[in-house]
Design a protein around this nucleic acid. Sequence first.
RNA 1: CAGGGUGUAGCUCAGUUUGGUAGAGCGCUAGCAUGGGGAGCUAGAGGCCGCGGGUUCAAGUCCCGCCACUCUGACCA
Length: 576
Amino acid sequence: MRVTQMLIPTLREVPAEADTISHQLLLRSGMVRKVAAGIYTLLPLGNRVVKKIENIVREEMDRAGGVELQLPIVQPAELWRQSGRWDVYGPEMYRLQDRHGRDFCLGPTHEEIITSLFSQEVNSYRQLPLLLYQIHNKYRDERRPRFGLLRGREFIMKDLYSFDKDEESLEISYRKMYDAYNRIFSRCSLDFRAVEADSGAIGGDVSHEFMVIADTGEDAINFCSECDYAANMEKTPCHIHEKELVEEEGPLELVATPEARTVQDVASDLQVNTEQVLKSLFYNVDGKLVVVLVRGDRLVNETKVINYLGANRLDTADSEEMLNNFGIPMGFAGPVGLREKTAVTILGDLEVKCLFNAVAGANKTGYHYINVNPQRDYQVDHYGDFRVAEEGDPCPCCGAPLQVQRGIEVGHIFKLGTKYSEAMGATILDEHGKEIPVIMGCYGIGVTRTMAAAVEQSNDENGIIWPAAISPFDVLIMAVNQRDELQAEFALNLYQKLKRAGIDVLYDDRQERPGVKFKDADLIGYPVRIVIGKKAISEGLVELKWRATGELIFKEKDKIIAYLQENLTAMKSSKR
RNA sequence: CAGGGUGUAGCUCAGUUUGGUAGAGCGCUAGCAUGGGGAGCUAGAGGCCGCGGGUUCAAGUCCCGCCACUCUGACCA
């Protein structure tokens, strides 16, 4: 391919809309353009990257026994009503009607469609296990799209669904996918980590996320400094040693704390540590008021709260409503006497159970209580693990201190069990002729997000540094002076030779100054750049430069193909 | 959804305070020159100043409403 035949609109300046590195570089290098918030056109170069990632995914899915098909984007509401998710999914789902007024949605995911297909077409355990997948667009009307391709409203995803007759078989399918995902992200040369995860609203129990390590990642992950434990922060359980009351319980006392609305303020006003403060957070959980008590220096883990309550939806309570409806002033709220104000579920984090002589809001603006003690001064409905794990907390497996990193979720695998097959009547006959719901798993990879994650992880001040396996082209070739006939002919000739040898090469045949072409090559980030200059004409020595290392070498023309084939192959198969 | 910011040429941004003929750099077109890191010179093209209303002799600028983009938070198989 020649640059003059392509559309590669590089930008010298950073578009004002882009904040994250990957967003900036993908725009500047002419890979993508924004059409609306969270919706992007893939330009020719970006499209080539996506296709390369898709092909790696496809090869590994096929190798693991997956079978590719294609499911529709426009899906009838009827199927979503069967699974019960039409009403649960919320405003994130794009909904539309056809001319007859029938409800449809743009598929945010495809469990319903695939389960429906399965229920119609598969009847016997003899046809299992079955691993069906597609690589297709997904649509989610994110409340807040951001970070360019990292969180879009339209994006490309590979989703595979496994169907098995029993748990043992599901375990095998799950393991195959787990291994395939490790191979895929290794082949993409990404620095990643598989972590235990919460399965969220999709249901099921066992779940792993594949996280590309990046400081800009939206998720925090914990991993153990000693053992293999690694988990999403929201999943990591917190263990504590229960303390006995060492001091005497002091008398409950009301103290004035004007203007002290935050834990920090209260602690400094009253000369105590923040961990001596009882923090009370109010939530609206499926329409009911719930308060969660944690130590002042901790964060509430809302996922754990949702899971404990078996809830669908959790929002922080509105402070005006709290004050107007119940007379509870946020900032001065606490568990003492709370039930007299309104019916409320009170949950306490395990640490709070042994928090004696604490400070807590008095439910009266400008006042706190001191010497607040559990049992004596307030009761909770349930003590449990409701806080977010922190760096240095003990590992739940071995007790060594946990470390924290940030990551970008590029893959997520779930054991679904029978949630969808039961709801939608996807049953099979087992060996005994008994009708049983098929056991499912689902396994997603964000393809466009993987592209962005790769850029996020691999760049320098000059631009992108593509891993060879997913670069839009392996090699860029150019002449220093395109108007010099000898150079141009040399470059064209070499370009054609490389192409015939099966090397993925792009020829920058523009009549631009060399500086422009150098800048573009660095910005776009081809792994190898070949420059035809005076030395090539006079001595037959061709310059090759590796983008990642900056290594510059000169090779005789005839030895280039062998050199490239050897080194590019090595680069593509090397793990990071 | 709440709170902040920004909308002026393809891109980055001045101009808005104090109303009075629409600006710069880069990019683009034509030409000159140059050819190892977005260099230079000459001449051009390019604007519903986000949209709608209002005030005024006069609005990019003042007032009201809306929209889009964006940041923080909440949310997120």
